[in-house]
Design a protein around this nucleic acid. Structure first.
Lengths: 170, 170
DNA sequence: CTTGGAGTGTCAACAAGGCTGACATAAACT
DNA sequence: AGTTTATGTCAGCCTTGTTGACACTCCAAG
């Protein structure tokens, strides 16, 4: 039951009316979509001994090879104990390699091995397939809007991490 | 390092080029944005004895008052044991009321109590504030695109649940 | 009226993946 | 020489997901 509450804001010359109902629909869209977003990799991981946390680590190491543990901690937003549990298994399973830093020997630089890269491919192929289908279905303007809104939803530090990854990736 | 792979598709009269790099950025946007999306309610819940699972239950009960346990199970996509653990605490804490069905007495219809509604308000106010800010910042066309893409990312059953909630809510 | 199935609740055990706190080591910095 | 930084690790706890088993009530169909 909508109680008719709404909020308005001026952006440029555009007046926005955002009812609570519209915002609630936005929340629910995020919830259901995120489930879809993780579903395919999760299915693959279920067979292995790994979980979503391993996927995230592998993804970001693959994305920024040579990243340090601290850097990864910032991106993932978990404690070092949580991350270490994941990294330890990935390293001992030979998916990730940890190299002592040249300049700063305290740092560990993380890289995917060939095997690690293979799993990364497999997982992100599954995820990208869904994203690709959704992007095609929605069209380019919708995709642009999608990214704009998502970026605006991030915490500032996350937005910074996101921007940094975009630079290095492109 | 982008390897230049890309995929094309025709939608209507629009040709879409989707590089793996673009799709990866989409994934990362989802990841970072979802973190922002849950951050505010999580902070509130941390003080109470509740977690994100309680939030979800409260949200959907508030959204569809009188919903049955089975219905909620379908929406949330967890096992009845998981849901029951959450519902049990919410009911015994007086936030949720479970009423025996009139027609079918096997069913339990779930409702928020006044106290439950108060918490629901508090949590979704926090979440909506961020969403509202993001929607304002991004503008109406972006919001439309955002929802289109999210909807396209959902599993079909989830899209059905989502659509159903939209009907009853509006 | 009986019987099968549906809707719900619950116990037990387990796993993933968060968390805190404490401590250890090596390397860098001052 | 002393402090800080980067990392690793142990121990224990919590939430929230899982499977499997069992019980109870109630509806519906034969």
């Amino acid at each position: 039951m909508s109680d008719g509450r709404q909020t308005s804001a001026v952006r440029g010359d555009t007046l926005l009316f955002l009812t609570d109902e519209q915002l609630r629909q936005g929340s629910e869209a995020m919830f259901f979509a995120y489930r879809g977003f993780t579903a395919d990799p999760d299915r693959i991981l279920a067979d292995l001994t790994y979980g979503r946390a391993h996927h995230r680590a592998i993804h970001f190491i693959g994305r920024a090879p040579g990243t340090t543990v601290n850097n990864l901690l910032n991106i993932l937003g978990v404690t070092k104990q949580s991350l270490n549990r994941v990294l330890r298994t990935l390293i001992s399973d030979g998916l990730v390699e940890s190299r002592v830093g040249r300049n700063d020997k305290r740092e560990r630089h993380l890289h995917l091995t060939d095997e690690g890269r293979a799993l990364e491919q497999k997982l992100s192929d599954a995820q990208r397939a869904r994203l690709r289908a959704a992007f095609r279905e929605a069209g380019p303007e919708a995709v642009a809007g999608f990214r704009t809104v998502l970026e605006a939803m991030m915490d500032p530090e996350m937005r910074a991490s996101y921007a940094k990854l975009r630079e290095t990736g492109q």
